[in-house]
Amino acid sequence: MKLIRRKSDLRAMTEAWRRAGQTIAVVPTMGALHAGHLSLVEAAGARADHVIVTIFVNPRQFNSPEDLAKYPRTEDSDARKLAPYGIDLLYVPAPEEIYPEGFATTVSVTGVSEGLCGGARPGHFDGVATVVTKLLLQTDADFAFFGEKDYQQLQVVRRLACDLDLKTRIVGCPTVRETDGLAMSSRNARLEAAARARARILPRTLEATIDAITRGTPVPQALDAARAALQEAQVEAIDYLELRSDPDLRPLDRADEPARLFVAAWLDGVRLIDNMALAPHPPET
């Protein structure tokens, strides 16, 4: 595994691979790697001749300077975690490699970016879309791997790749969970023990709500019960708890088409997100 910090060095490597007729996969990350990230790396290695993992804590997708400052920077331990996977390049660009002096362009995706995290974090997906576009172009990737835990982000990236005629195929991979069901996230490490124990209420509430809807409970009633369950578990705040169509993420009040249930909630000052798929069932006759 070679560590590269400059896009000129990155391109020298990718151009050599291209001349050899070889394929490239990229796993974009912000570091603080966990098993969820590593599952993406493993999937990338099975798909392409060469794998690049990127680590860049993107300031443009943070709404709070405090949140940006708290985000863990763990490059050395991340490199150790990646070593067994036989990746070719670890690309850790400095901010000026992504946003050089005078940078004045923003990639903005409408539709799938609206509401959910897009509503709770204004401008967040403009930052995501801009940096992902840059990384896909810099790495010249044939495939890019993203986790379904950030499902709205995945749909934003798919939309921009399609709309901008990028050659990169966007591959979504299943959410990796802890033994108690909590979706793996770099933010989980910031939870104190008591809040971490309470965090299991998120996946349990999603599962219970999906079960209730599947058994015929009207969606608004099921969501009200889910909010009550989260509040009883002393969740500090709920940014959203919604049923959305899949893949275009329209708000739904009936479960008569493919859908996902989304939640974002705060525990111990940490914002956690999750989602689960809901299979459609026929409308009542």
Rank of each mutant, 00 (worst) to 15 (best):
residue 10 L to V: 08
residue 13 M to R: 11
residue 15 E to F: 07
residue 17 W to R: 06
residue 17 W to C: 08
residue 19 R to Y: 03
residue 23 T to W: 04
residue 31 G to K: 09
residue 32 A to N: 10
residue 47 R to A: 15
residue 48 A to V: 00
residue 55 I to A: 02
residue 58 N to E: 13
residue 60 R to I: 04
residue 64 S to H: 03
residue 64 S to M: 13
residue 65 P to C: 07
residue 66 E to N: 04
residue 66 E to R: 14
residue 70 K to T: 13
residue 72 P to V: 06
residue 73 R to W: 02
residue 75 E to K: 02
residue 76 D to Q: 15
residue 80 R to I: 03
residue 80 R to L: 15
residue 83 A to F: 00
residue 83 A to E: 15
residue 84 P to G: 11
residue 84 P to I: 11
residue 85 Y to S: 08
residue 89 L to A: 09
residue 93 P to N: 12
residue 94 A to E: 15
residue 97 E to C: 05
residue 97 E to Y: 08
residue 99 Y to I: 08
residue 100 P to W: 15
residue 105 T to C: 02
residue 106 T to S: 06
residue 107 V to C: 10
residue 111 G to P: 08
residue 119 G to C: 12
residue 126 D to L: 05
residue 126 D to E: 14
residue 126 D to G: 01
residue 128 V to F: 05
residue 131 V to W: 08
residue 132 V to A: 03
residue 137 L to W: 11
residue 137 L to Y: 15
residue 138 Q to W: 11
residue 148 E to K: 13
residue 148 E to N: 02
residue 149 K to I: 03
residue 150 D to T: 00
residue 154 L to H: 02
residue 155 Q to L: 14
residue 166 L to C: 03
residue 167 K to T: 12
residue 170 I to T: 04
residue 174 P to Y: 08
residue 175 T to F: 06
residue 176 V to Y: 07
residue 183 A to D: 12
residue 183 A to E: 11
residue 185 S to E: 01
residue 188 N to Y: 04
residue 189 A to F: 05
residue 191 L to I: 08
residue 196 R to C: 09
residue 199 A to N: 04
residue 201 I to W: 10
residue 203 P to W: 05
residue 207 E to F: 09
residue 209 T to L: 10
residue 209 T to D: 13
residue 211 D to N: 11
residue 211 D to W: 05
residue 213 I to F: 02
residue 215 R to P: 01
residue 221 Q to F: 07
residue 222 A to W: 00
residue 228 A to M: 03
residue 229 A to K: 05
residue 232 E to W: 03
residue 236 E to D: 12
residue 237 A to D: 14
residue 239 D to T: 10
residue 241 L to P: 09
residue 241 L to R: 00
residue 243 L to P: 00
residue 245 S to Y: 04
residue 247 P to H: 06
residue 250 R to F: 12
residue 250 R to D: 13
residue 252 L to A: 05
residue 255 A to W: 01
residue 259 A to Q: 05
residue 261 L to I: 13
residue 262 F to N: 00
residue 262 F to W: 07
residue 269 G to A: 01
residue 280 P to H: 02
residue 280 P to K: 08
residue 282 P to V: 14
residue 284 E to D: 13
